[in-house]
């Protein structure tokens, strides 16, 4: 009996999760979350990121064996 209960509960939770995921899919909730929340947040993060000044890289040729 107890085992049946656990199976039923597991199936119920799985069913609900599946239905919930279908709602996310059908109403494009993943797209809306990414568009309105995640992307602006990430954009803000990248816009304010400290970046290396490209001019700090030396402008010179590296000599190697294959060139000789």
């Amino acid at each position: 009996m107890k085992a049946m209960k656990i199976v039923k509960k597991t199936l119920g939770i799985a069913g609900l999760a599946y239905a919930g995921l279908f709602c996310v899919f059908y109403f494009d909730l993943d797209g809306k979350l990414l568009y309105y929340v995640v992307e602006p947040f990430m954009k803000n993060h990248f816009d304010n990121m400290k970046r290396r000044d490209p001019h700090t890289v030396p402008y010179e040729q590296i000599e190697h064996e294959y060139m000789k």
Partner: peptide, 19 residues
């Protein structure tokens, strides 16, 4: 994903590309 814009701002939207 946290370090590179081309990853963190771009590829998470991949399923919309399918759409």
């Amino acid at each position: 994903t946290w370090r590179y814009r081309w990853m963190g701002q771009t590829y998470l939207t991949v399923m919309h590309w399918f759409d």
